[in-house]
Computed example of a mutant assay.
Amino acid sequence: MVTTGRCRFCGRDESPGQHRAPGPKGPICADCAETGLAVVRDGEARSSAGGTTLLRLSPDAEAACDHCGRWERLTFLGFRRPLVRMRCEELESVICAACLDTAGDVINKASRGQGS
């Protein structure tokens, strides 16, 4: 499912032909999903296409992902491990790497006409 509305991470309105992945608090655009994956991969802060600051959260931060509601996961042996997450400082939005990846898949499928 792809949705419309302001992106939770850059604040930009949707433009024609631009797909967004839904989230409980609002959608994420393709640009922010792509930039977010780079942020969580290398830890370097970046500016979004809308001019907001996107940065990787420290492992001890307890800010939950806006999409899945988690900030940690349990390993097979029951150990707690923090999820890698990205935050938009200005819009106070948080998303984990797994939800960024899923959002990218949703947007790619919609772009190819394989989902709605």
Rank of each mutant, 00 (worst) to 15 (best):
R112S: 09
S111Q: 13
C29G: 07
G50R: 03
P22S: 08
V39I: 09
G26A: 03
C29A: 09
H19F: 11
C88P: 07
G113S: 08
A63E: 07
L77R: 09
L74W: 10
E44C: 11
A64M: 08
G50T: 04
G78N: 02
D60F: 14
T53A: 14
T75P: 01
C88F: 01
R112T: 06
G50M: 03
T52E: 08
A38F: 00
Q114P: 07
G23N: 04
A98P: 06
C32A: 06
E44R: 14
L91M: 04
E72F: 10
D60H: 11
A64G: 07
R73S: 13
C32F: 01
V40N: 01
R81S: 02
E34K: 15
V106L: 11
C10V: 03
A98Y: 08
S47F: 15
G11N: 12
A45M: 14
A98F: 07
V39M: 08
L37F: 02
P27Q: 05
C10L: 01
R46F: 04
P27A: 05
Q114V: 07
L55G: 12
S93Y: 01
T52Y: 04
D101A: 13
G51H: 05
G11C: 09
T102P: 08
M1D: 10
G11E: 09
C7V: 06
E72K: 09
P27D: 03
R12H: 04
A97K: 13
D60I: 14
S116L: 11
C7N: 07
C29I: 04
C10Y: 01
F79K: 03
G17R: 10
L55P: 03
T102Y: 14
C99Q: 09
A38L: 05
E92P: 03
T52M: 09
P27M: 03
K25Q: 11
D105C: 04
V2G: 10
A98N: 13
E14D: 06
V40Y: 02
R41H: 15
E90I: 03
A63D: 09
S47R: 15
R87A: 07
G43Y: 00
C32L: 03
L37S: 00
C7T: 06
G104H: 05
R8I: 02
G50F: 00
E90F: 01
L77T: 14
D66Q: 05
A98K: 10
E89D: 13
H67Q: 12
G36V: 00
T35G: 05
G11H: 11
P27E: 02
I107M: 01
E34W: 06
S116H: 12
A97W: 09
C65Q: 11
C32T: 07
L91Y: 00
T102C: 12
P82C: 02
V84A: 10
T35L: 12
F76V: 11
T53C: 15
M86G: 01
F9M: 05
Q18A: 13
R87P: 02
V84C: 08
G50D: 04
R46T: 06
R80I: 08
G69P: 10
G51V: 06
G113R: 13
C65T: 11
T52H: 09
M86L: 12
L91W: 00
A21Q: 05
R80Q: 11
L91N: 02
E34A: 15
S111K: 14
F9T: 08
S15C: 08
E34Y: 10
L77V: 14
